[in-house]
Design a binder for these strands. Structure first.
Lengths: 352, 352
DNA sequence: GCAAAATCTGCAATCGATTGCATTGGGCAT
DNA sequence: ATGCCCAATGCAATCGATTGCAGATTTTGC
């Protein structure tokens, strides 16, 4: 008595062919039975049997094999300039949640604000056949959009737009209304009585920096004021914030500073202390983003809250829609931010 | 005069077959010429010509097609319990940097501390044929490791180990020496003169929580003391920290609390203030992780600094090594943390 | 100067799933 | 009872790159 022939499931995972053999049908039938979209093409009884066998054999689809045939990897990529900046994780989380719910995996990469690295990463993503790309790293002079176009990868910008570039209209973007947002900060400072207000701007070439800067100037002039100082930071980092603030402090006097983002504010606090002055008491500070925990720094930062979650969600939905139908008209969404008043802003100290 | 036959590069990307035709060689030769590892098998002249044609045609490898054949996707997955917690982005960054340098893309997913979601994500990663998995989400009762084993995916644990589980030894892990780390905090508090010290522990089933808890107790008893209170938090979140601290404050008196991590400390600060007391002046607080910006909260948090970057790097190296040779002995690396003293700890207030 | 060995290149199968087209069979109408 | 149509299933090609094997060419050794 020979033992019955062993179905041999041991080596590797079961394939559609294994299931077909076991269920006594053709591989194509298995494929149709297992794919929800085509399941209707197959008799209910067959579908049931195939599903049962597939389960028993522990069959798992191979996204790679399917992707080769269909040219879709069920994967999207997301490029972030700097994951360490706490505003990105919440955005990423929202994007990933929406994508995961639709069956997409998310390839994440840090560009570290380096255009060369960004290009390399896009190439690699193209190699991996991502179905779409979410770019949080837009900046002037980047070839990112051109690369996406070349590879035919649908892309959506998030948080940052292309700074008045030529190809703006060609790509959807979900960003904050930065000009409006910084205006809220200016209004607040003016209402407190400040007249000499400086701006610590973001790095050149990034839309959040340029928009907040022009928004700052516009709103200030709306109040009949001129900036008491304006220095751009080299990057959106704490260190760059400290350096830029030190430069501002070395210039003409001011009683308040509207800073381009919260990360810079940490450096601003450092610089103010290093100069022997006090935030709020001597100089009012406003931030931008309301990133996590800035309510707990001292003094609590008055800042402009953005809608991280809505941003990620909407961008994800738009990307999915454009992946499904590339002919869809492009969209340019501006989310409206709100001012959160804490302890870093006070009426100006009258000069003795 | 008919125009010369058009090479037809327009539709889609050029494939290896296109390059072969154009270069007048066989596809297999192209493959060998273009793959650095096999380039030596081919005449230098041919290699040159093929490379030139490939460039001209804008050929890009298809990781999907190659992956189907080789069963390697050049992709690794990383599972994070909660990306919003600022200790994970630096770790992730380190992992991603090492992986990118070796040509691997990184699939990131949030488990949101949900074992079911974790299982689903691992399945999906298996579907995508990841070559390896980095798990930052280890906890008791998770089937993660079993799933990896079933799918034959090499895995490495990072930041959290399996809590004294059976299969510890089967998987490499790179973690902090949590018991030693919390001991540093205890030593510091005792040296300041505290005798009634409480512990705000992490959530059940997570190694960082259990190790820090036993480390706390051991070290306390080493000093001849008993805990003045011990409450576990429901999760590593600010809210859970607040709730747990409120519970501690409602119990027997204590002058200092060693908290299981920095995120919880934010809630601890909230709770202390809500109770009308002051951190440092009335109750000393120590954290764990030295996550970004806790130097700027008020009062600056005394905490235990971990080596995010080294952790990510080493875990990545180990994963790569085990992917290359699954027979390698498993490793269990403990990185040693250091105490960072700031303003949240002071000698105890003598009761009047 | 000729055989043996080494080197290069081509051939064809393969990875696993998908899908247009062909075939089969059952049901229905006349 | 005959023919027709439609639904269900099978067949085979395909996606793009890799690789064991074999054939062709060159180099080496004696």
């Amino acid at each position: 008595m020979l033992p019955p022939p062993i179905p041999s499931p041991p080596p590797g995972r079961a394939t559609i062919a294994d299931v077909a053999r076991e269920a006594g049908v053709h591989a194509s039938t298995v494929s149709r039975a297992l794919n929800p979209a085509t399941r209707g093409m197959v008799t209910e009884a067959v579908a049931l049997r195939v599903t049962e066998v597939a389960d028993r054999l522990g069959w798992r689809p191979s996204a790679v094999a399917a992707g080769l045939r269909t040219r879709k990897s069920r994967t999207i990529g997301i490029l972030v300039p700097d994951l360490i900046n706490p505003i990105f994780p919440p955005i990423l989380h929202a994007v990933e949640t929406v994508m995961a719910a639709r069956g997409y995996a998310t390839l994440v990469a840090n560009t570290d604000n380096d255009p060369a690295r960004e290009a390399l990463l896009i190439e690699r993503m193209a190699t991996h056949l991502v179905d779409g790309l979410m770019l949080a790293s837009a900046a002037a002079g980047t070839g990112a959009l051109a690369l996406c176009a070349r590879f035919g990868i649908p892309a959506v910008l998030i948080n940052r737009r292309m700074p008045q570039g030529a190809d703006c209209a060609a790509t959807s973007a979900v960003t904050n209304d930065d000009r409006h947002g910084i205006g809220l900060a200016v209004d607040h400072l003016v209402a407190l009585g400040h007249r000499r207000i400086a701006h610590l701007a973001g790095p050149e070439g990034v839309s959040t920096a340029t928009d907040r800067r022009t928004g700052f100037l516009d709103r200030l002039r709306h109040h009949g004021l001129e900036p008491a100082g304006l220095v751009p930071a080299a990057a959106y980092t704490r260190e760059a914030g400290q350096v830029a603030m030190a430069a501002l402090l070395a210039g003409p006097p001011f009683t308040a500073v509207a800073v381009a983002n919260d990360m810079l504010c940490l450096g601003v606090y450092d610089a103010v202390e290093a100069a022997g002055r006090r935030v709020a008491a001597d100089v009012s500070v406003t931030g931008f983003n309301d990133m996590p925990f800035v309510d707990r720094i001292h003094p609590g930062l008055t800042t402009v809250r953005i809608q991280h979650d809505a941003m990620g969600r909407q961008a994800a939905e738009i990307l999915l829609a454009e992946m499904a139908d590339p002919a869809l008209p492009r969209r340019d969404i501006r989310l409206v931010p709100e001012l959160v008043i804490r302890a870093s802003t006070r009426p100006p100290q009258e000069p003795a």
